[in-house]
Design a binder for these strands. Structure first.
Lengths: 236, 236
DNA sequence: CCGTTTGTTTATGTATACAAAGTCAGAGGT
DNA sequence: ACCTCTGACTTTGTATACATAAACAAACGG
């Protein structure tokens, strides 16, 4: 018998977790949306148990806020909130490049250069989706080069909350020239194993990101205020 | 009506979570110990559901490792593992004092001085439990002074894995004099709002901690090896 | 005697049932 | 007209039952 489907047998809770995470990050479930267990269970065709476990995981990552006996909702994104995350990420990103300077292998450097070139090619396409993807991959190369598993997973969970803003950030960066230049500088510093230079470039890089994201959030907030004043359209 | 018990009505999962966490941190459940749901449920007098949720939480914090379809066990503490955590904490601790320099209020400074004095009094008692407690509180004052909620919760979960070693660390620090001096230096730097000095002191502080913890882990490992060679005694 | 296979046991994965708390609306009284 | 109380309904909290995979052991065959 052929048994066509050699599917991954990952537990339902993980599958649910991925779906919910995706839905939250793409904005399908906007901040403030209540996540009700039976409802989600019906929608995804599973019982409450895996849903509950998935929600617990999302809560620990900060994407979901739970109030006991009340239920779960998609976390509000406040300026303070995002600012806090970025502040931490700044320190950790700098740590990443510093460690990378010490520990990156020659293969790692090749990989990094490839990621850099890939990013520049992506910029040439002018497709923001491709650019964002290449950008993530570039950073991942650096993060992995640290060899610090805890740092890797922290960076991962701290980047999550701002994936929503990544597009706008990419679009923002005037002609993408800055991004390309910054990436090049970082690669050069790491290649020369110069932690100070790398740290300062990485700091600048994330400061720019911060400016863009903050502007974005303020825009959203203004829009919300307008809606509140002049009547809110339904989301969908 | 008096209604004597104004007890916190925290959900069972949180109560279970606290108990398990405590048991792991005190070493009652040593690394590698399997955590079986029915067994724990019987022991704590609750059903599997809250147990499962508590285990999920512990997993996200890194205290427990899960293998699908296999079960959960207390995470092994490896040197690499601990080193990774300390590397991250070093960066975050430095960030903490830097932010504290910028943001601490005058009440905060008073609180900090009080915590410092408290620590010195604790040292005078020569009771390691009291000293450890005062040390945690001292650091918490600084962490809270940053006003960064994300940083606060990260510091919290990153300190967890090494609570097991805190005693030894305290005991180690020759006569506690170093600890007292380091704390004083940090307080002075923050009071003068001198981020560079504060950063360098905080760095030194955690480097010392690192040395002590690493020595401790190596001792444990040696002991394990001896046991493996000459016959292991039962744990209890 | 060893290896393979199969059955039994044990623990997890998932679903569902029941209990209790919270919410909201409507009836009734002031 | 407003406030309050009550009761139904909604939703989470917890327990339990059933399904399925993994581990171990015993039996069978080579």
């Amino acid at each position: 018998m052929p048994k066509a489907q050699e599917e991954d047998f990952l537990p339902l809770r993980d599958s649910v977790y991925n779906k919910l995470r995706q839905a939250i990050l793409t904005g399908e479930y906007p901040p403030g949306e209540r996540l009700m267990e039976v409802h989600l269970g019906d929608k995804l065709g599973v019982s409450r148990t895996p849903i509950r476990e998935a929600i617990r995981m999302l809560e620990l990552e900060g994407l979901v806020t739970m109030i006991p006996r009340k239920g779960a909702m998609v976390s509000q994104i406040t300026e303070k909130n995002m600012s806090d995350v970025l502040e931490v990420r700044r320190a950790l990103d700098i740590l990443c490049v510093q460690l990378a300077c010490e520990r990156i292998t020659s293969e790692g450097i090749n990989e990094l250069k490839k990621a850099r070139d890939n990013f520049e090619k992506a910029v040439a396409t002018n497709d923001n989706r491709i650019i964002a993807q290449a950008d993530v991959e570039f950073h991942n190369v650096i993060i992995r080069a640290t060899g610090n598993d805890r740092l890797i997973s922290l960076e991962d969970s701290l980047s999550l909350p701002m994936y929503r803003y990544r597009y706008e950030y990419i679009k923002d960066s005037s002609g993408h020239d800055n991004l390309v230049k910054e990436h090049r500088k970082i690669v050069n510093a790491i290649e020369k194993r110069n932690p100070e230079a790398a740290a300062s470039e990485a700091g600048e890089h994330i400061d720019n990101q911060r400016r863009s994201i903050m502007r974005q959030i303020r825009l959203e907030r203004e829009e919300e205020t307008m809606n509140a004043l002049y009547g809110k359209r339904t989301i969908r």
